[in-house]
Design a protein around this nucleic acid. Structure first.
Lengths: 218, 218
DNA sequence: GTCTATAGGCTGATAGAC
DNA sequence: GTCTATCAGCCTATAGAC
């Protein structure tokens, strides 16, 4: 795994670096413009790599796209699934879910736009190995909410609807950071640009208040 | 406005119908696949119209796209702006905002995906006549929230962050109806598919609880 | 207003040299 | 593993007949 040690005769110079450059360039471009909005020439240029390498390493444009999606979805699904399975009080679990989600997207800011595009579009990769991971990511928070209701910590809301509203507002916030940044530069943002941590704090505050069976003392 | 009366000599057979067919077909396809994911051939085929008509009536693919976006954004912005300007108690205004938003998208289900794609993407049409309307749509709810805070009906939350979370979850719900429909058909949806009215009810319930200065009696 | 035919550019993929 | 050269296919736009 630690790549070529530079002493053996045959193996190549830098195969892993090429792969990674393509994954990085592709993620940024696909997130911003969608699968159809990006050409393999652009990706190769940005990665400073020959475009034939996309076919060589990933079997083509679709293969690269799928690899990028999986590289982000698999670890995210794993961490969030663990969190949902752990025996943590519902309020804390919900909080940690949101924090973990944001933390994951700080490592990989291109994941939210890509997954949202997949949810909107016909669903290019929705049958393959990818779909179960999406289910895990969304299912985890749904389970946390359902558990909170079962324990009577939360009011008897609909878990499916509730998890959509929490994850939805979170995803929306994350995918629109770019617009706000651009608006701020133009000076047309009506208030200081909120940081992810501000949004997380708000979401925790308001949704917990909205869900709790026993309203907090003000 | 009532189109050709079929008696005069020169005017053409059905120009308005052609325009409308292109607007309808384009809206459906752009919403599902994005600007780059759709070819003018597909649009023309779906509209049962010759593709040269796109250039003739709208000056090209981009022109059609802009016309579709404006046709939905302009009336929406107008109605929501009125609502924000009216002197209505904050809780009711917030409720009506969400209801109006959903009602507007029932007339035009392709608007939420299109606007979300615009917000994510580099922003193809973001400088033109279109941008002010987006500002009005989002600004209206921000104003309602700010008013609620000023009147001490709502807790002193950040209006910018708060309106993002409300509109965000709403938009997310609307643009993911397609996936849930497909999942339901496959039998992999973990609960009965929530209708827009269920979601609206939930959003009203939970956000109002989360925002109110005086928590409601349970 | 509508349609056919076509131009000209760009797309993704690959064969074959190194 | 990498790169160059090249291909066939699709794309949008338009000139010109009706």
């Amino acid at each position: 795994m630690a790549s070529t040690t530079r002493s053996k005769p045959r193996p190549a110079r830098d195969s892993e670096a090429t792969r990674q450059a393509l994954l990085d360039a592709g993620a940024a471009l696909f997130a911003e413009h969608g699968f159809d909005g990006v050409s393999v020439d652009e990706i190769a240029r940005r990665a400073r790599v020959n475009k034939a390498m996309i076919s060589y390493h990933f079997g083509g444009k679709e293969g690269l796209y799928g690899a990028i999606l999986a590289a982000a979805a698999v670890p995210a699904a794993e961490r969030l699934r663990e969190l949902a399975a752990a025996d943590i009080p519902p309020v804390e679990a919900l909080t940690r879910y949101v924090e973990t989600f944001v933390e994951l997207t700080e490592k990989n800011p291109h994941f939210p736009p890509m997954i949202l595009r997949e949810l909107m579009g016909g669903g290019r990769l929705f049958d393959e190995a990818f779909f179960p991971h999406v289910l895990a990511i969304f299912g985890s928070i749904r389970m946390i909410i359902a558990r909170g209701i079962a324990l009577k910590v939360f009011r008897p809301v609909d878990p499916l609807v509730t998890h959509l509203s929490v994850v939805g507002s979170l995803l929306f916030f994350l995918v629109t950071e770019g617009v706000r940044e651009r608006m701020e530069k133009k000076g047309i943002l009506p208030a200081p640009r909120p940081l992810p941590k501000d949004f997380v704090a708000h979401l925790k505050d308001v949704t917990i208040r909205g869900l709790l069976a026993e309203p907090p003392r003000n």
